[in-house]
Computed example of a mutant assay.
Amino acid sequence: MQLTLDIPEKYFIYQSPVELVRLLKLNTAIDLYRRGRFSVGAAVEFVGSMDRYEFLYECRKRGIEPQTYESKEELQSEIDMLAKKAF
């Protein structure tokens, strides 16, 4: 799916469109992760240009601690989701 945003050109003075898109995706992923809507794996996939350690480092810089799993079932669900995407 593709999403189109209209952003005034004056906001590209300090960064390129590619950099701005990456920042918007990163900030969105971090917010959704913080609110429990994204797992680390989903957030990394959403951003698309970093690994889980880089993502967790970015979270840490913003004062967001790593989320923990509330149950074994929740952990297993994420493992299963990631396994499906690996193949």
Rank of each mutant, 00 (worst) to 15 (best):
F12I: 15
K72Q: 11
Y33V: 10
V21E: 13
E19W: 14
E78G: 06
F55H: 06
A86W: 06
Y14R: 08
E73I: 04
G41F: 06
S77C: 11
V18D: 11
Y57S: 03
F46E: 04
T68K: 08
E58A: 01
E78W: 07
E54C: 00
K84M: 15
Y53Q: 04
E54S: 01
M81Y: 09
A83D: 08
Q15P: 04
D51N: 12
L26D: 05
I13M: 14
I79R: 09
Y14S: 10
T28C: 03
E58H: 03
I79L: 12
N27L: 00
R37G: 13
P66H: 04
S39H: 08
Y69I: 00
S16W: 06
A86H: 06
K85D: 11
T68N: 10
E19H: 15
L3Q: 02
G63I: 11
P17A: 14
F87G: 09
V21Q: 13
F38W: 14
F46N: 03
I30N: 08
N27W: 01
Y53A: 05
Y14N: 08
E19K: 15
P8C: 15
D80E: 14
R62G: 01
P66S: 03
G41Q: 07
V47E: 03
L56S: 14
E74P: 01
M50Q: 09
S49Y: 00
I64H: 07
L26T: 08
L26E: 07
Y11T: 14
R22K: 10
Y57T: 03
P66E: 04
Q2L: 12
T68R: 07
F38D: 13
I7M: 12
I7R: 10
S71W: 05
I30D: 07
L32E: 15
S16F: 03
R62H: 00
I7H: 09
Q2R: 10
Y69M: 02
L75V: 00
E9F: 14
F46T: 02
F87A: 11
I30A: 08
E65K: 00
R60C: 09
E54H: 01
E19G: 13
V44N: 14
R62A: 00
G48C: 10
K84C: 15
G36W: 06
A42H: 10
R22G: 02
Y57W: 05
T68I: 05
S16A: 05
K25F: 02
Y33C: 10
M50P: 06
V47H: 03
